[in-house]
């Protein structure tokens, strides 16, 4: 492993701080103002994008994933894990949203009553 420097941690920390605070202020501005500057459809992908950006920043500057000597097994394993995660998370949300979409509230109530007796 190559020598890691204080500089890399300072850069990583500064970027993470900026990204965390910008996501926070975007959301608090959205809640506290009646006329939201950004619509919900833009805001949600934006804060998810900021989180992913921060993931990349921390992977590079805190975990030094790009400093790895070859063969880069850690990186390869990370990428394949991200693949599995995308399938699990996006797949679950997609399928379950469609299940909800195809049932109206009364059907859901009837179903819950018949199944659980609530």
């Amino acid at each position: 492993m190559k020598k890691i420097t204080i500089k890399s941690y300072v850069i990583g920390f500064t970027f993470s701080l900026i990204l965390t605070l910008s996501a926070y202020f975007l959301v608090s501005m959205h809640i506290n103002s009646d006329f939201g500057i950004l619509s919900q459809q833009i805001l949600i992908p934006l804060i998810i994008g900021i989180a992913i950006l921060q993931l990349i920043v921390q992977l590079i500057f805190f975990l030094h994933l790009t400093h790895e000597s070859k063969p880069r097994w850690n990186f390869v394993f990370f990428i394949s894990t991200i693949g599995v995660i995308l399938i699990v998370v996006v797949g679950s949300v997609w399928i379950m949203n469609h299940l909800n979409y195809n049932m109206n509230p009364q059907q859901v109530d009837q179903y819950v009553q018949s199944q659980d007796g609530f």
């Binding site: 996501a23 804060i47 998810i48």
Partner: peptide, 11 residues
Amino acid sequence: FTIVYLMGAVL
């Protein structure tokens, strides 16, 4: 923080 708290406050 992003998915539970921030998105919870918006959606």
